[in-house]
Design a binder for these strands. Structure first.
Length: 411
DNA sequence: CCTCCACCGGAACGTGAGGAGT
DNA sequence: ACTCCTCACGTTCCGGTGGAGG
């Protein structure tokens, strides 16, 4: 590759006219002013919440839908509209939004709620029930309706569901104010783990967000692309292709927007003035590779070691390897670097986990006389995955370690 | 048709870290 | 500061099994 002078390099990039007008609208954090193809859900939400404007307690609501079906956007949108309207009508109505993935313990949730009402609750230290009563006093100081949106509520439930139990019973302790909750969940079955009392209270109303189909995603992308890109930079096939890829991915609009953004970034990087079909295909691949790299990088050491063993065997010419082979190599690697040795039983589970993550493909096959085992093949690139694994300082010493493979009797 | 390999995968239990309650 | 609980991660033990080879 030829080296340009730095000056020339930057000059070239500056001269290059940007194709984006406003890239932010393609990011998942952006909440649009109106949502396409979610009228039915938004209407149901509004119908239930309208009683807040009359000073009544709206029913609690559970919202289900897979990732990228517009749950969060729709809920926030309705919340904002509700607050606007209540202001205009001079009714006190507050909508709080909490993401339970970030705030995932009872204490932090309550402290966060109390703080939104101006209470001075320390990050840690108070007993949980004191935080709770502070919160109750605070909101009961005047007549108002409070709507708490709990996004990713399934994350909260996995920790413990007594927060939800307490919150769902809060109205019995309140004299002037009223509280209602909206739970948003990716997981359709998460109520199975719920205390039946919480379940019936929380699920007074349920709204389902179905996945978008390719055509609907197309509409959404078209609308967003108008704001995000300059006119005419998108090739005709770009949006339909993004939509088609995302539709395969169970109608995930977030994925579609990512694709559209990354496609543009790739085109920009190539100094192209137009985004073409091939950019979308490259983007699709890039997103997938990035995902895998991230998963591999954050794997626990033991799993990394198992994966490294599989790659090692693969590089020695084995297409499909068995659990036994992997375990043998794994033992040698463990001895070479100072790492605890796990049992084969445990390794079986780790291999299954790698399978679930889509990094390897493991199927149980019978080799007749030669027993029954998992046949493992790699479903990611060997060299790049190996490099990611070697970034881990604990695996680094293995780079030039080449233990012999115990030969198999058959084949 | 039966055997027997080389593992699979369920169950029960052990351990240590980290929260909640007191 | 203390105990109690829960949970993730591992281990031990072991019954179970599809099919090539006898």
């Amino acid at each position: 590759m030829k080296n340009k002078s730095l000056d020339g390099l930057f000059q070239e990039l500056l001269n290059n006219e940007p194709i984006f007008k406003n890239k932010e609208v393609l990011r998942p954090s952006y909440t649009p002013d109106f949502l396409l193809h979610r009228d039915a859900q938004i209407n149901s939400l509004a119908t239930i919440l309208v009683s807040a404007l009359r000073g009544d307690t709206p029913s609690n609501i559970l919202i289900y839908g897979k990732t990228g079906t517009g749950k969060t956007a729709a809920t926030r949108h309705v919340g904002i509209e509700l607050e606007k309207k209540s202001e205009a009508m001079n009714v006190s109505c507050v909508v709080l939004y909490i993401n339970c993935e970030v705030i995932d313990t009872q204490y932090r949730l309550l402290a966060n709620l109390a703080r939104q009402f101006g209470e001075d609750v320390p990050m840690t230290g108070w007993p949980t029930d004191q935080v709770f009563s502070t919160f109750k006093e605070s909101i009961d100081s005047k007549e108002q309706v409070i709507i708490i949106i709990l996004d990713e509520i399934d994350k909260l439930v996995k920790k413990s569901d007594d927060v939800l139990y307490n919150l769902s019973r809060i109205n019995t302790d309140l004299k002037r104010s009223k509280v209602s909750m909206i739970g948003v969940s990716n997981d359709l079955k998460f109520t199975e783990f719920l205390d039946p009392r919480v379940k019936s209270s929380l699920g007074e109303e349920e709204i389902i967000f179905p996945p978008y189909d390719a055509e609907q995603i197309s509409d959404i992308l078209k609308e967003r692309a108008q704001i995000a890109y300059k006119d005419g930079v998108l090739d005709d096939m770009v949006i339909p292709l993004c939509a088609a890829f995302a539709a395969q991915e169970h109608g995930d609009a977030r994925r579609a927007l990512d694709l559209l953004r990354v496609s543009g970034e790739l085109a920009e990087r190539e100094n192209q003035s137009k985004v073409e079909e091939r950019h979308v295909r490259n983007a699709q691949e890039k997103i997938e590779v990035d995902r895998i790299v991230e998963v591999v990088r954050t794997l626990p050491t033991q799993s990394k070691l198992v994966l490294y063993s599989i790659i090692y065997l693969r590089n020695k010419g084995y297409r499909n390897v068995t659990t036994g082979q992997v375990y043998n190599i794994y033992l040698k690697f463990c001895n070479s670097i100072d790492v605890d040795v796990l049992t084969q039983r445990r390794i079986t589970d780790l291999i299954s986990e790698l399978d679930m993550l889509g990094i390897v493909n493991a199927i149980v096959v019978s080799k007749g006389r030669y027993g029954r085992t998992k046949e493992i093949s790699l479903s990611v690139s060997t060299s790049s995955t190996r490099n990611v694994l070697l970034e881990d300082y604990r695996l680094k010493p293995l780079e030039n370690f080449n233990p012999p493979i115990v030969s198999q009797m058959h084949l």
